[in-house]
Structure formats: structure tokens, C-alpha cells
Simulated scan of single mutants.
Amino acid sequence: MISQISQPRLKGYRFPRSVISYAVWAYHRFALSLRDVEDLLAERGIKVSYETIRSWIRKFGTQIAKHVRAARQQPSDKWHLDEVVIMIRGVKHWLWRAVDSNGEVLDILVQSRRNARAAKRFIARLVARWGTPRVIVTDKLRSYGAALRKLALEVDHRAHKGINNRIEGSHRPTRKREKIQGRFKSARQAQRFLAAHDETANLFRPRRHKMTASAYRQKRAAAFHQWNECAIELAA
């Protein structure tokens, strides 16, 4: 996936943008460690330490995710919201996530609380970015209802655990990466990583079981093209 298209070199970096964007893509696209990505690059004749790759991912992963998010189409008007616990240095935190009816992640937010104030903050953030949906589906946590009342949103709120399975599955890749990384080191690091991780998943993991082989290949080619276009926008 290393782009063969000539791209301007980043000032202060000895490797071209195509190599940097490939390292960021491989790390977020697959369940790989930093040393795994180092080995992938080494097999291609690119000698770089995993610590350098770590700095690339920390700095440029957020930038690429921002450009990918900006190019996204408006989501469907039915949202699924859920929260899952993550441990950070022995302290319980909550990862709030929202997906639309197509399974695409709308946003994530790592917070230290699981109450009405935290729910209000997350929903307000979603509405500010995507507008007001027609339907919001949640589990039976009462904080969602309280948050919607405080925000005075005219939406159809459906609180039922059995109909919120779509978002339950979106937590699995997070659990997998959490295990590989040996848990997250801070709330800020978790927020930065998961935001880029979910945007990469949105782009490269379409609902393949509902697509023909040719349609999937076209979708994948478009995703690669978009990723390379985002790499051109990187700033040192």
C-alpha cells in the first residue's frame, strides 16, 4: 500500500510521506504491535526503529483521522450509543461510543464518569458535529434520558438492551487492541488512539457481507486513494 505516487517530503523527516502513512495505516488497520510494523517495513528494506514509528503514529495518526472524518458523508439518522469500561493505570474510565445504523463509528469519548453529565457532554458533542438524529438507541442507563431532557432534543429515544446489539460488536476491536497494548496509559492516549483507530476502521472495514466482490474491491481501492490523499495533507 506504500504509494508509488510522488509526494512532497515532510520537512525534518528522512522518510517520505508514503512510508509514514503506510506505518500509520498498518498499525491502525491490523492488530499489530509497533515491533510488528517495524518488521513489515524492514522486509521492504526500510530500516526504522519502533520508537520512531510510535512518534509517527502519535503525531500523524490524528492528522490523517481528522482528514478522513472531514471527507465523510452525513451519517444515517438512527444512532446507537453505548459505554464500556476501560481500565487506565488501575482506574476505571468509560469509553462512550456512537455508531449509525450502517455500523460506522460517529465518535468516541473517554471520560472518567458514567452519569448524566458525561452522557450530556457526549451527546452534545455528537449533535454539534453531525446534527440532530431522528432516533437514538441506548441501553437502559437512565443517564441518557436525563441528558436528552437537559439538551431538549426532539428525538425518538429507544432504551432497550436487546435492540442495541449493533454497537455492542463495535467494542470488540477495542478490547483486542487494549490487550495487545497492555492497556492504555492515559485517558488522553486512549482518546487519541481510538479516534484514529475507529476512523481507519470506518474507511477500510465496510460491511463486506452485503457487497459483491467487485463492489468491495472498488470500495477498497477508493479507501486507499483517500488515505494517500490524506497523507499529502500531513504537516510536520
Rank of each mutant, 00 (worst) to 15 (best):
A65I: 04
V105P: 03
Y13E: 13
K120W: 08
T200F: 10
R89C: 12
L10I: 13
K161I: 00
W130Q: 10
A118P: 00
L95Q: 05
A231L: 09
A236W: 12
R114L: 06
K66N: 13
Y50H: 15
P8Q: 00
E51G: 09
F224E: 15
R89Q: 15
D198N: 15
F184L: 02
I108P: 00
R188P: 01
I88L: 01
A31D: 09
F193K: 08
W227A: 07
T52P: 04
R142A: 14
A159Q: 11
Y50P: 05
I180T: 10
E178G: 13
G103A: 06
I88T: 01
L151A: 06
S76G: 12
K150A: 13
R207F: 05
G182A: 02
R129V: 06
G61V: 01
A196R: 02
F224P: 08
I180V: 12
R114W: 07
I136L: 01
D36R: 05
A222I: 08
F193A: 09
Y50A: 10
R172W: 14
I20F: 01
Y22T: 09
K59G: 10
L234T: 06
A23N: 03
S33L: 06
R158D: 00
H28I: 09
A147G: 06
K47A: 13
L148K: 07
R149F: 06
K59I: 14
Q63P: 07
Q191T: 04
V24G: 03
V99A: 11
A71R: 09
V155Y: 00
I57S: 01
E51D: 13
F30V: 08
I57E: 01
E168Y: 00
A196P: 01
R166G: 02
W227R: 05
